Each structure stands twice: as structure tokens, then as C-alpha cells.
Amino acid sequence: MLAFADLADFVIDNVGRQVICCNARAGVSLKTIRHLLIDQVLPLVVNLRGREALHATAVATRKGVCAFTGPAGSGKSTLAASFVLSGYPLVCDDCLALSDGAPIRTLPGYPGLRLWNDSVRALGASSRKLKAVAHYTTKSRLTDSRRGDFCSTSRRLARIYLLQRTRAGKRAARVLIEELAPMEALMGLIKAAYRFDTTDTAMLKRQFHFLAGVAEQVRVKRLVVPDDFSALADVRQAVLRDLSGRPAR
């Protein structure tokens, strides 16, 4: 069972085929239940069903899918939204499901990005495309009905960026993309992986081998970005140059 204090509980069977919401607290809206299900529960169910997913947000480019992962608040969704508003289809927000094999491929999530109010203002997103996420957060879900804004098919995963903001007081720093040693890349993926039961040794072994394969097939890099919304365009250009194999400026 997955319990969300003062909100609701979810009971999941042993193989992840049935999910039941129960014990919803008084005043908890259907919108909040939906958010808990699709953004918190289902990523863990993916793992329970024998597949792997990363806590990452991703967009599709002509060179393949690029994914952004990093700690909460590092700007994954904001950066992805800046790509989407510039014409690059969204693949997922926060849960990147991956298929096994060669090449590694991404599976689509749903058309929506969760953003804080300051990100919405900085991006200039239309209020008509915003919906409340849940009653306990001020985040909004950025959605768009245009077909081209969402990638609904499986695509090759081209790059994974471990997102890192520059320290306070260094906002003038430029965008930096760094190669990672194989072990550092693997550890970054392990930190980003979803796990339903951290005591399940068979699952942990399966996941380790899968992520090792991802690190071998997909280039994983560190993406250091200024802690400044005005730098989003520069970050996009740096990522696109990197995907194209062009040297950084």
C-alpha cells in the first residue's frame, strides 16, 4: 500500500495490475486524487511490473529524445517547457519510462508539465493552457491540445542530462555541458530511478543491470545552468548544439 498522509491511500496488487484508491480524506478533490495516481503512484507501478523509469522530464528533437534529470527544484520541467514552447514535442514530465533493447527507446507519458508560478510567468505561458494540479500545491499543469506539442510514439533516447544549477552568486556563469565518467553516469541514473520496494533484491539487481545498459548505450552528461530564467534560451541552444555534435561556444 502507498499512503499519502492526510490525502489518500492506494492499494496495489503484487504484480501492479490493479490499483485501488481508498481512505480518501474529507475535502480531497478528484483532481488531487488524479495527480497522486498519475504522478506519484503509476511511476512506482511501472517498476513493480518489471519495467524501469527515471525521474526525468524529456522532449523530442530531430536527433532523438533528450531527458533532463536532477533533484527536485533543479528546473527539469521549466527547461522542458521552454523547449515545448519553442516547438519541440513533450515526451513526459517527471516519469520517463524506458524500453529494454538496443537502442534504448522512450515511452510517452501524458501531455502536461507541472510548473511553479514564477516559471509560468517567466515562460509567458497562456493562462488558458493552465490547470490546477492539486489543492495542496500552487503548481499549475501546462497543457496544450495541439497535436504537435506532444510526442505520442516511442522514440530513440539520444541523451540524458544530469541537471545542476550554479551556486548562488554565480548567475553570470555560462551554460556548461560536461562528459561524465562511466561510473558517475551510472550513479546518476541509479539516483534517478523509481523503486516500488527498496528491499526487493531481485528488483534491485534487475534495475542495476538495466541502468548499466542504458549508461553504455546513451551518453549521459552533466548540464550546469545559471540560476536565472533569462538563461533558458542559451541552455536550449547549448543542448541542441551538443545533440548535433557541434562544439560549445
Rank of each mutant, 00 (worst) to 15 (best):
A212Y: 11
L48W: 09
D94W: 04
G16Q: 07
R51D: 15
T201W: 13
Y110C: 00
T106P: 11
T166S: 05
K139Q: 06
R146S: 06
L223P: 05
R206S: 15
R25N: 13
R246W: 04
Q237N: 11
R62S: 14
P111Q: 05
E52D: 13
R167V: 03
G148E: 07
K139P: 15
A172E: 04
T57V: 09
G101R: 15
W116L: 03
S99G: 10
R219S: 13
L186V: 01
T138M: 01
A132G: 09
L176Y: 12
S99I: 01
D118P: 02
D200P: 07
D228F: 07
V133E: 00
D9C: 13
G64H: 14
T106F: 08
R25A: 09
R114D: 09
C95T: 13
D13W: 05
A192L: 02
T32G: 03
G64Y: 11
L180V: 10
S244V: 01
T153S: 05
I12T: 02
D200S: 08
T138V: 10
A193Q: 14
Q237A: 12
M1T: 15
G188N: 01
R121K: 15
R249C: 00
A132Y: 03
L223Y: 08
K191P: 02
L176S: 14
A3R: 15
R156W: 03
S82L: 00
F229A: 02
Q18H: 12
M203E: 04
A24E: 09
A122E: 06
L36Y: 13
R105C: 06
N47K: 07
H35Y: 13
H35M: 03
F229R: 09
D93A: 07
V65Y: 08
L85V: 04
T153I: 03
K31C: 04
C151Q: 04
D39K: 15
G27F: 10
M187E: 05
L113W: 14
V28I: 14
F68W: 01
V235D: 02
R195C: 05
L186M: 10
F210M: 02
A134Y: 09
